[in-house]
Write a protein that binds this DNA or RNA. Structure first.
Lengths: 194, 194, 194, 194
DNA sequence: AATGAATGAGGCTTCATTCAT
DNA sequence: AATGAATGAAGCCTCATTCAT
C-alpha cells in the first residue's frame, strides 16, 4: 500500500513528531482525507506501522531462531546473518523499526516501549535460550559476561549499520560485514570459553 | 545567560525541530526580537549552544585525562568517574550534548556530526593515549579488543543512564553506578590481560 | 428508522452546522453512501427531519386542541399538559424541534422560519380559537392582555424546561411543573377576568 | 480595534462554533498569526469579547439604574429606554452579548453562564431594588406577580427586537417601540396595582 | 439498496523569522 | 540593546459530498 510505504519512509527519516502528514500524502499521492479515513490520527498510523513492521519481521526472524546452535557465539553469528538478510529484504521496515525503537517523542514513546519490551523479552529470551553455559570458563561471572558479549555485538552492529547508510552495493557489503564480525567473536570466544 | 539556559533545556527536551523559539523566549523571559538579534536563526543558536557546551566541558573533561594511569581499565574507570561528576555538575549541558549528538534533524545533523567527529577523534585519541598495551595477553588482536572494551563501557553507560532519568537521589546513584562498574572491568581485565 | 433517530439527536445536540454527517452515519451504523442516497445533502436531511417531526406531533398536539374549553386559562392549562406529555413521549422529537426553531445557521434559517411561521400561525390560531372573551373585564385591551398571558406562559415554560434538562425523574417532575403552573394562572385569572 | 469588531460580528452572526477564525482575519484584514498572538485560542478570544462587551455596557446600563423610581412600572420603562439606547449606540456589542448569552456550544457555555449568572443576579438585583411593593393590590402573590411582569417585558422585548433586525430607520423605530410599550405597562399596572 | 474509498477545502493553531519603533 | 506586532506557511485533523462497485 502506498500509504504504508510513504509513511514508513517519512517516519524513519524524520521521527514521529517531525514527520509531516502533508509530506506523506504528497509522497503517497493520495488525498489528505483518505489518510485520516484509514487512520484516526498520526499516532494511530505510527503505531499501526509499528505493529505491521513487527508482524512482517516476526516470522523471518524469530521463526528461525529455534534451531540455532547451543554455542552462544555460533548463535550470535546466525542471528546477525538473519538480521542482515532482513535488512536486505525489507530495508524500509527495518529502518522504520529502528527509528521507532529510538523514538523519543513523549506522545508515542510509552506505547512503543510497551510493545518493545514485550518484543525484546521474547527476542532476547529466545536468543539466550538453551545456551550451553558449561562452555564458559570456570568461575567466570556468566551473567555479566553475557552482557559484555551483548554490548559488543550491539556496538559492532551499530557501527556497521552506520556504514551501510551510504552503501551502493548492499549485497557485497553484507558479506563483508559478516566476515568482519568473526574476528570479534573469536576474541570473545578465546577469552571467555574454556 | 537566560537565553542559553532556556534554549538548552528546550533543545534537550524536544530536539532541534520541535524546540520552539516561542517557548524559549517565554522561558527566558526575553523578547522575540532580542533572540534573533543575537542569533541569526534557530540553527545558529543551536550550533552556538553546541560549541558553548563543548567548550564548557572540554576543560573539565579532557583537561583531566592527561595525568591518567596507563592501565586502560584504570583509565576507563577514571573517565567514567569524570563523566558522572560532570553529569552531576552540569546536567543541562550534558543532556543537551547527548541530545545534540543523537539529533536526527537533517538541518543540523551534518554540522553536528562534523563537530562530533572532531571531538570524538580528539576525545578517543586522548582516552587511548599512552596506554600500556604490553599488559594485554600475547597474540591478542589489540585493536579489536579495545573496540570490544569500548563497546562494553558504552553499553554499560547507556543502560545506567537510562536508570538515572527517574532517579531522585543522584549523588547516591552515581556512587552505585561506579561501584557497579567494577565487576565488568574485572571480567574484561582477567580475560584480556596477561 | 435509525437514520432519523441518529440525525435528530445529532442536530438537537450540536445545531445544524456543527452536526456531523460522519457522526450520524456512525451512530446510525449505516454507510456514508446510503445517507446521501436518501437525502441529497445535509440541508435536505435537516428539513426532512423538521417536517417529519412536525407531522409526528401534529396529531398528538393540534388534534386534541379542538375540544378544549373556551376558558382561555383552562385551555392553556390543557395545552401545557399536552406539551408536557409530548415532551415525555417523544423527547428527541421535541428537543429537535426546539433546536430547529432556534437554529441560527443562515443556510437553513430561512426555510425553518417559513415553516415555523405557518405552524405558529396555525397553532396559535387554534389556541385562541373559540375563546370566550366575554369573561374578561370590561374595557380591558383584550388583544394585548392575551399577549401578556402568552408571554407569561412562555416564560414559565422556558424556565421549567431548563430545570428538566438535569432531571432524573421526569414523570414526577412533569406533575410538579403542572402543579406549579396553577398559581400563575390564578393570578392572571383574578387580574384579567371579571 | 479591527479584531474586536470583526470577531464580534462573526460570533454574533454564527455563534461560537461556527464562527471561523479565517473569516475573522479576512474581515479584519489581519494575518492569521497576529490573531493568535493576541488571543491564545478561539475560546479566549470569545471570552475576552464577552468581558469587553460587559465592561463597555456596564456603566451605561447599571450605572443609571440607581436613581430610578420606586414604582416598578416606571422603572421598567426606564430600563427599557436605556436598553434601547444602548442597542442604538452599540448595536454590535449588544447583538454579540445576546448571542453569547444564548450560546449553546459546550466549550464556552459553562464559562459564559458563570459570568452571566453573576451579571444577571447583579442586574436583576438592581432592577428590583427598592421597589415599593405597597402599591400592589392587597393579598396578591407579589413574587409570582413580579415574575409575570418580567416575562411580559421580556416577551415584548424579544418580539420587538426581532422586528428591529430588518429596520432601516433605527432611531425612529426606537421611539415607536417605547411608545408601543406603554399600553402593556398600563394593563399590568391597572391589573396588579391597587 | 448499500458500501466505504476518495476528495480537497476548510477547521484551529504553532511556527520561525522580520521589522518598525 | 530591546520590544512585540506582524506575517503567512505549515502543522494535524474534520468536513460534506461523490462515485465506482
Amino acid at each position: 500500500m502506498r500509504i504504508i510505504n510513504a509513511s514508513m519512509n517519512e517516519f524513519a527519516q524524520k521521527g514521529y513528531l517531525n514527520a509531516s502528514t502533508n509530506q506523506i500524502v504528497k509522497e503517497a499521492e493520495i488525498s489528505k482525507g483518505i489518510l485520516f479515513h484509514y487512520f484516526k490520527n498520526k499516532k494511530e498510523l505510527f503505531l499501526f506501522l509499528y505493529d505491521f513492521a513487527v508482524d512482517t519481521l516476526k516470522e523471518d526472524y524469530f521463526g528461525r531462531l529455534d534451531t540455532a546452535s547451543s554455542d552462544i557465539f555460533e548463535r550470535l553469528r546466525q542471528i546477525s546473518a538473519y538480521k542482515l538478510e532482513i535488512l536486505g529484504r525489507f530495508p524500509e521496515i527495518y529502518n522504520f523499526l529502528m527509528a521507532a525503537h529510538f523514538e523519543e517523542s513523549g506522545e508515542v514513546k510509552h506505547d512503543i516501549q510497551k510493545r518493545d519490551n514485550e518484543l525484546l523479552q521474547k527476542g532476547y529470551g529466545k536468543v539466550y535460550e538453551n545456551i550451553d553455559f558449561s562452555l564458559f570458563k570456570e568461575g567466570i561471572d556468566i551473567k555479566r559476561t553475557i552482557e559484555i558479549i551483548t554490548w559488543s555485538v550491539e556496538g559492532f552492529a551499530i557501527r556497521e549499520q552506520e556504514k551501510l547508510k551510504h552503501s551502493d552495493n548492499l549485497e557485497q557489503d553484507y558479506q563483508n560485514i559478516l566476515a568482519g564480525f568473526d574476528p570479534y567473536l573469536d576474541i570473545l570466544k578465546k577469552s571467555f570459553y574454556k
